[in-house]
Amino acid sequence: MPANPKYLTQSKGQRFLKITAAILGGYFVSVTFHLALASWFNRVNVLITMAFTGFILWVALMVVAFLAKSGWKIWGIYLLLTLFFCGIIYLGQTNNPITK
Rank of each mutant, 00 (worst) to 15 (best):
F66R: 02
Q14W: 04
A22W: 01
K69G: 08
G71P: 00
I77E: 02
W40F: 13
Y27M: 12
T82I: 07
V29I: 11
Y90W: 14
S39A: 15
G92D: 01
V44H: 13
F28G: 02
L24I: 15
I89M: 00
K100D: 07
P5R: 03
L61H: 03
S30G: 13
A68P: 01
K12T: 12
I19A: 11
G71D: 01
V59A: 14
I74P: 01
L67P: 03
Y27A: 15
R15P: 01
L91C: 06
W58K: 08
G92L: 01
R15Y: 14
K12I: 08
A36D: 01
K100P: 08
C86M: 14
T20K: 05
T94A: 03
V64E: 08
I23G: 02
M1D: 10
L81R: 03
K69R: 13
N42W: 10
P97R: 07
L83C: 15
G76H: 04
L67R: 14
N96M: 12
F55Y: 13
F28Y: 12
F55E: 07
F55L: 13
K100C: 04
P2S: 09
L80W: 04
A65R: 01
T9W: 04
T94E: 02
H34Q: 14
W40M: 13
K18T: 06
L91M: 11
Q93W: 03
I23Y: 09
P97Q: 10
C86L: 14
S70P: 03
T9A: 09
F52N: 08
P5S: 06
Y90Q: 07
Y90I: 04
A3E: 13
F33P: 00
P2E: 12
C86R: 02
M50K: 06
Y90K: 03
K73Q: 13
G25V: 04
F16N: 09
G92H: 01
G25R: 03
Y90P: 00
W75Q: 07
K73A: 15
Y78N: 07
I56D: 05
K18D: 05
A21Y: 02
R15L: 14
V31G: 03
A36N: 00
A38V: 07
N45E: 12
N4D: 15
T82F: 11
A21I: 02
L83H: 02
R43L: 14
W40N: 06
N96I: 03
I98W: 13
